[in-house]
Design a protein around this nucleic acid. Structure first.
Lengths: 218, 218, 218, 218
DNA sequence: GATGAATGAGGGTTCATTCAT
DNA sequence: TATGAATGAACCCTCATTCAT
């Protein structure tokens, strides 16, 4: 009889293998047989557990989302004030653990598919909307709703810009630089509302003690 | 003697065909035979005029740069003050003529190759450095050098963010919206230094009467 | 489970098809698609069972070595004295079963690749060394070691010369002629040490009753 | 009006370029465009001066024959006795100037084509017959005709064997080694008829002072 | 005489996918 | 559940040859 839970295990094996391969060779350089080989499985398994290559890639994209979300949770775990929570979002996206050249490269690969793959486009839009909404909600705690939305938009755009830059110039735009740039920006952008001195060592310890709170950023 | 000047003509044909195909199907979906077919040439011609597919793609990327630069020239033609020149840069990048879904899609395709293609990476870094320097130089006309550099960085990042967003959500982030968002942002970001009321209809007429001034953005 | 043992079967099919095609059209005229077609398989199979065309050709060369070795075994099976064993080597190389125009043609094709293919060069050198050593060992049974080595070298060179000649003039230099020429040569070259009257009909019956003895020529 | 003699000049340019390329990359790796490029001419010129690629290769083969013949002339120039003339033939074929890895490699390339190219086969047979006849004629000056023919055959085969070996193992079988091996062999093979002490430095100076005598080896 | 543009078939190779076992 | 054999279209690229200029 079939082993229980095999499905989840196998899918996870394949997805993780796919992430690594896309990091190294991009989506174009990642074939089904490479994925199954790296996962230690036979080629046939990919189509046994996924409808086709695209379905596997879609699951892979969700896995990326999950990983990034986890980083944000890590930061959120210790955030107490709205200001800190905004920072947590930004830092979760830009901390060295998130903004590695490899990670950024995978995201870039998927972005490149968006215009020709409605499924990917949909996922990205969901994420973008979710993120912006969460950010706006947080900001609304200490400023008028309208202003909060406007700021949320700007922050998301700025973070996206940092990611794109990191992808194109991984040496010049490391996680450290990106965080510093973002902090400076936030300081000026949010002005008085952003009182807290942004000097903490936050983002430097990707402590595993978090990842439990606030489904809001999921 | 064989027809003279064919080289330039054919290369141009092939590059333009490549742009169109990448707009429609991405780099992955753009094969050499499709390119030559769209250009109305035999498959062999691609390798007669380019070392390989990659060389053609590189030329294609430069063509994209050229097109974008031309839009910036269009805007610059009528810019008189530093403020207007900063706007010209931003509008050249975001005006509806530049930020079409198709154009954005091609750029995204090339960005996706950057981590695995040193040639593309080099080109993108050249452009980024060039752009930021030009912007900083312009801003330095009305503020301290250091501050100018800082603003230039932020503006470039913000524009990049807008492009990425436009790529992922072409409906929501049209050229018009992008320009408006950017103008609002600039207004706040540059503050007093940015006195001029940004309300012009600029960017809506991609007049061909320009493209002559200021080698600085070249 | 997939069919077991297919690997060996398919590789053999492909190698045999390659031999036939190279016999007929040379290596240059033997394409992967021709090979797979002659083997009754899809083109993809070649790269499923071999790293690339070169790996298939390498396996094909080893198959040729195997076939030639088998002929030598056939002759060795009935050899009792050192003299007879020397003759067995020579006859195994030159008997009509070995020295057909087609066989010679395939070898010539591979020789032609040697200067530009290190793998082929290596294989040929291995064979040459092996052969000469075996011959010298046998000759050493009835003459001083030094002399045996000298004779072995000469015999190998002479046999090579006969192969080259057979390749260039298959009509004039048939297996029969080659054997007779070699026997005359050996008679004179080895002189007294070569007492046995070389008149047998050996080599004319490629009996399949042998191929078991003496690992020495392996 | 057409420049006189251009034909010969151009053909020579192309043939020499072909020799160099085949030395480096074999016949398979030598394309028409490579040849014309190396000759400093346009691609079209090959088909202007030769019927097709094969005709050029044929001319190239004849050029190789010419070069080898010239080496034999060099040796023949100083040969006085029949014995010396036999040596001259052998040395002309094997002297370091003739038996370079590159030269041997080109010949091997052409041999590889022989079974599938009647034109090449014909040329090779002409040369072989010519050579053997000349050698037999010389030997007949100091031994019975029948014996001379037999020896001529053996010598030619042995020299061919040395070439093949040199092709497959250029390090081990240099011109020097080949000459020494051949001299030893001749000494023993021809025995009393071969009185002259073979110790001269012959073959070490490819003096250009010869190349005039005896059309017999042409 | 000389150029190199142009062709299109064919080269080796990779690939997602299917399926018998 | 799991294997990897099998397919064949499509990939990029090379080539000998022709031909307008």
């Amino acid at each position: 009889m079939p082993k229980v839970g095999m499905r989840a295990v196998r899918r996870s094996q394949l997805v993780n293998a796919a992430v690594e391969l896309i990091e190294d060779h991009g989506i174009a350089g990642t074939s089904v047989s490479l994925i199954s080989a790296k996962a230690g499985l036979a080629t046939g398994m990919v189509h046994h557990y996924f409808a086709d290559k695209n379905a596997l890639l879609e699951a892979t994209l969700w896995e990326l989302v999950r990983r990034l979300t986890r980083q944000i949770y890590v930061q959120l775990a210790e955030a107490r004030t709205p200001t800190e929570r905004v920072l947590a979002y930004v830092d979760g996206n830009l901390c060295p653990a998130s903004l590695t050249p490899r990670t950024v490269s995978v995201w870039l690969s998927f972005w490149g598919q968006v215009p020709h793959n409605p499924r990917f486009a949909r996922i990205h839009n969901i994420i973008a909307r979710r993120t912006q909404a969460a950010l706006a909600r947080t900001l609304a705690e200490c400023m008028p709703r309208e202003e909060a939305v406007r700021h949320a938009k700007v922050i998301v755009l700025f973070v996206d810009g940092l990611w794109l830059r990191a992808a194109i110039d991984p040496e010049g735009m490391t996680g450290e630089v990106a965080m510093q740039t973002a902090h400076d920006f936030l300081q000026r952008q949010l002005g008085a509302a952003f009182k807290r001195p942004v000097t903490s060592t936050r983002g430097k310890r990707p402590g595993e003690n978090a990842a439990r709170k606030s489904k809001r950023y999921r």
